[in-house]
């Protein structure tokens, strides 16, 4: 009440507001400056540690693409044959991605149901399954692939297992977020008629969430195609392996590498667009 008569407390609301804004701007500016400084010094450090410097290498950046294009254009008549020749390898890469997405998604569904509150079979074990998924997610595919290549020999199976392992963790987390939004009424209804846990999940939860599962799995499939191409490069079969061989032929023989680049690029773009289109349609279907 005293404040009503004493005008000083209200006399400069504008000043304090301006001061606050300025302080906020200052902090924001400092943050931004620190961030930009980190970025610049980071690039300088990375440049220093690189075998060749950035500015020295920049003029040569287009040399390799130029070589590839030159080799490909002089042997243009061989291109269709190359495309046909490497198609089975491409198919293997896609198969690795598809199989690992499928297997990973199946494990992810189980893991996610076991780690969702209200749905879990053993509610006490929820933190355990979450940690398991965190670890599965954190393991880069290449680690498992290289270890398995040592044991199982080169080929698609190590890559498939490695990608499926990571996929199970990555999708498991997304799926359990989806599960949390599922309506529990069907589950309760099924429980009241004596359904087992598996039946409750299969008939009560999965039909509700399957469009979201599908959408996430599709996005993952697209990521996994890239991953399986990369794993091929370290010896796990598929188009990546062929690419590494083609790269080793050296200058003048890059026509095979060009064919593989084209195949890989087209595959990624096609699946990227396709999955984008299908997911868009799924979202719109749900909005109806």
């Amino acid at each position: 009440m005293a404040n009503l008569t004493d005008g000083t407390a209200y006399s400069h609301p504008r000043d304090s507001y301006v001061a606050m804004i300025q302080r906020k701007r200052l902090y924001g500016g400092i943050m931004l400056a620190v961030f930009v400084l980190m970025l610049i010094s980071g690039f300088m450090l990375a440049d220093e540690r690189n075998a060749g410097g950035f500015w020295a290498g920049l003029p040569q950046l287009l040399d390799f693409p130029a070589d590839v294009v030159a080799d490909a254009s002089t042997k243009l008549h061989l291109m269709p044959a190359h495309l046909v020749k490497f198609f089975p390898a491409l198919l293997e890469t896609i198969n690795i991605a598809a199989a690992s997405t499928l297997i990973g998604a199946l494990f992810a569904i189980i893991l996610s149901l076991l780690s969702t509150r209200g749905l879990a079979l053993w509610p006490r074990a929820i933190p355990l399954f979450r940690r398991v998924m965190d670890i599965m997610r954190a393991v880069p595919e290449i680690v498992i692939a290289l270890v398995l290549i040592f044991i199982l020999g080169g080929g698609p199976v190590p890559a498939m297992i490695a990608i499926a392992f990571h996929t199970a963790g990555a999708l498991g987390k997304l799926f359990s977020e989806v599960n949390e939004n599922a309506d529990l009424k069907p589950v309760e209804g099924l429980h009241s008629v004596g359904a087992t846990w598996f039946q409750r999940m299969w008939f009560g939860v999965v039909p509700q969430v399957s469009p979201n599962y599908f959408s996430y799995a599709l996005l993952r499939f697209e990521i996994n195609i890239r991953a399986s191409a990369i794993l091929g490069f370290v010896g796990a079969g598929g188009i990546g392996y062929e690419l590494r061989n083609a790269m080793s032929w050296g200058k003048g023989k890059f026509d095979e590498a060009a064919a593989i680049f084209i195949l890989l690029f087209l595959t990624i773009v096609i699946f990227d667009q396709l999955s984008g289109y299908v997911r868009q349609r799924l979202i719109h279907q749900e909005a109806h």
Partner: peptide, 23 residues
């Protein structure tokens, strides 16, 4: 940019800049 993919970008850049963190 997305379609070329990290693998091909890596190969391309390491040809010009050599191996290392900048690549």
């Amino acid at each position: 940019l997305r379609g070329v993919d990290g693998l091909i970008w890596t190969i391309l850049l390491s040809r010009a800049l050599g191996p290392g963190p900048l690549t």
